[in-house]
Design a protein around this nucleic acid. Structure first.
Length: 254
DNA sequence: GAGTATGTTATATG
DNA sequence: GCATATAACATACT
């Protein structure tokens, strides 16, 4: 989604100014570094790995991560708003990163590999092959949901999408990974790709997801899209999991 | 005021 | 090293 937005609004355009409004969001480099590397040059393309965005400009990449509350906007006029953290001046317009909670990150990386190595990121969730995904899941213990959220295993699955994937696969969030067959692991991999693609297809407007998707109404007590029973929740891996106790009971405790 | 939230990282414990 | 739990970060909303 964010990658598409950047492709449409930034690719091919010349950067005329760059302002870091919140230095706390700098993950690498400085405002000075970034100005030297990017101002006066043209954005060539936008790459993504999991939730990490890299915009190729000249010989370097502008790095962005939207955190929990980040969003990108194109402004026709140069207006300020309270939560602007970063501005890229283009010819006539301004690209702005807004982020109320300031969990997003900005920076400069020479190569994408530098980012992957520094963070120890696993393969991208949207493009990982079944074979690689299964090999990552095998030889692991522990519960499935925290594993899906571990960006070092596979990069790009967030809390909401992990819930959706487990719902689609009818797996309880606490299912032990080593209780899954290789077919089930491969199914999970396919489900991750399908769920993410479907969400991108509705431009991450969760209310527009197809029927049968948990994320259309992910609340405790809301009706399960499959059986109509009330959804439950539990705390696992430090995060909330919303799920259906009736439908998501496969493989528990084996 | 309390509780919760779309993410990541550090730290502690077994 | 691994699995797990917890806190921290900063802010908005219910």
């Amino acid at each position: 989604m964010a990658r598409m937005f950047l492709e449409e609004n930034l690719k091919g355009r010349r950067i005329v100014s760059l302002d870091v409004l919140d230095t706390k969001m700098l993950a690498s480099g400085s405002e000075i570094n970034m100005r030297e590397a990017f101002v006066g040059r043209t954005a060539d393309g936008v790459r993504r790995h999991g939730k990490h965005l890299l915009i190729k400009i000249g010989d370097d990449h502008l790095y962005m991560h939207l955190g929990m509350s980040g969003s990108l906007h194109i402004l026709e006029r140069d207006e300020r708003s309270p939560h602007q953290r970063f501005r890229l001046g283009l010819d006539g317009e301004t690209l702005v990163l807004e982020d109320p909670r300031r969990f997003g990150r900005l920076g400069i990386y020479h190569r994408m590999e530098d980012l992957l190595n520094e963070r120890g990121l696993g393969p991208d969730a949207l493009t990982v092959s079944d074979r690689v995904f299964v090999s990552l899941m095998a030889n692991r213990s522990g519960s499935i949901k925290p594993l899906l959220l571990d960006q070092r295993v596979v990069a790009g699955v967030g809390n909401l999408y992990a819930d959706e994937v487990l719902f689609q696969e009818r797996l309880h969030p606490a299912t032990k990974v080593n209780a899954l067959s290789r077919e089930e692991m491969a199914g999970l991999g396919r489900s991750i790709r399908m769920v993410l693609k479907t969400s991108i297809g509705v431009r991450t407007d969760l209310s527009r997801l197809p029927e049968g998707y948990l994320l259309r109404d992910r609340r405790v007590g809301a009706p399960c899209p499959r059986c109509g029973g009330a959804l439950s929740s539990l705390q696992i891996g430090g995060r909330r999991a919303v799920f259906c106790q009736v439908c998501q009971s496969r493989r528990m405790g084996r």
